[in-house]
Amino acid sequence: MKKPLIEVKELNLKFVSFEGIAHILDNVSFKIYGREIFGLVGETGCGKSVTALSIIRLLPKNSIIEGSIIFDEKNLLDFPEREMAKIRGRQISMILQDPTSSLNPMFKVGEQLCDAIKSNQPNRKDVKDYALELLKVLGFRESKRVFNSFPNELSGGMQQRIAIAIALSGEPKLLIADEPTTALDVLTQAQIVALLKDIRDKYGTSILLITHNLGLVAEVCDRVGVMYSGQIVETGPTEEIFYNTRHPYTLGLLQALPYNKPKDKPLPVILGNLPNPFNPPKGCRFKERCSRATKECENLKPKPYLISQEHSVACFNPLGDIIC
C-alpha cells in the first residue's frame, strides 16, 4: 500500500479559558498522500481551521493538543518550536481565507516574496529572478509591475495568488489552503482553484483544501473528509463520498447544494445547531439533528469503521447505496 505524506492520528484538541474547557477536536484522523488534493469540509465552527493550525503548530497558547501528526516518519507534535520553524514554509505551508489581510500592508509584495524565498532557501543567489519566475507561474503577466506593488494596489484574487507564491517559495510538500476562495468572487474563485490544481500537477505538491463548498470539492479533490463538531464523520475518495454517501450528515450537506434541489421544493436545510463545545453530548454528536437516530446513538459514541478499503464512516445507522 502507498505510504501517506502526512497522517493525522486521533487528534484531540481542547481550549482552556475562563469559561472552562472547550472540546474542539475529538479523535480526528485522516491521511493525505503525495500529489493528492484532500478536501476537508464541514459547516462553520466545526474545527477545520484549528485542524490546519494543529498541523502547522500555530495554535493559540491556551490549547491542549493530544494525538500524533506523522510527517516524514516523525511526529510533528513532538517537535520543539525551533525544529517546527524549519518545517514551516519548507515542508508545509499555508494560505489563509482572507487574502486582503494575509500580506503586510507596509511592504511591497515583491519584497515580501523575496523575504520568504530568503528565509526558506537561504543558499539561493538569484532571489529576485526566482521571485519573478514564481509570479509568472502564478499567472502574472506583468510580473515586474506586480513585484513593485503594495498589497492594497492589487485585487483580492491577485493578493491570494501572491500569497500562494509566498507559500510555494520553499517548495513545500504540503500546502494547506484554508478556504482560499471564500472571500473572492466566483470568477476569481475558479481561477484560484485551477491554479491549485496546476500546482499539484506541476510540482507534485499535496494540498489540504479546507472549504465548505462541496462544489469545489467535487471539482478538484481526490479524497474528502467530512467534519462535524470536531469529528471526522466520513472520509473517502470523492466519488465514494458523493455517490456512495453513508453518513446522514454528509447526505444533508449534499442535499443542501443548490443544484440538487428539486424544482418545486425549497432548499432543504439541516435543522439545529452545533453542540456546545464546553459540554459535548454523550453518544453521537449529530443525533439531535439526525432523522435516523436510534437509542444506540443516545449513549454510545459511534467509532469510524471501514466500509471499503478507503471509505470509512462513523455512524450506527449508515445509509445504504443511495444515488442522489
Binding site: G89, M94, I95, S102, N104, D115, S119, N120, S169, I176
Partner: peptide, 15 residues
C-alpha cells in the same frame, strides 16, 4: 493575520 501568515510560511523570526 499577516503575522500568522508569515509565520506559517517560514519567514525568519527576526524578519
Amino acid at each position: 493575520n499577516y503575522i500568522r501568515f508569515a509565520k506559517a510560511n517560514g519567514f525568519r523570526e527576526n524578519l
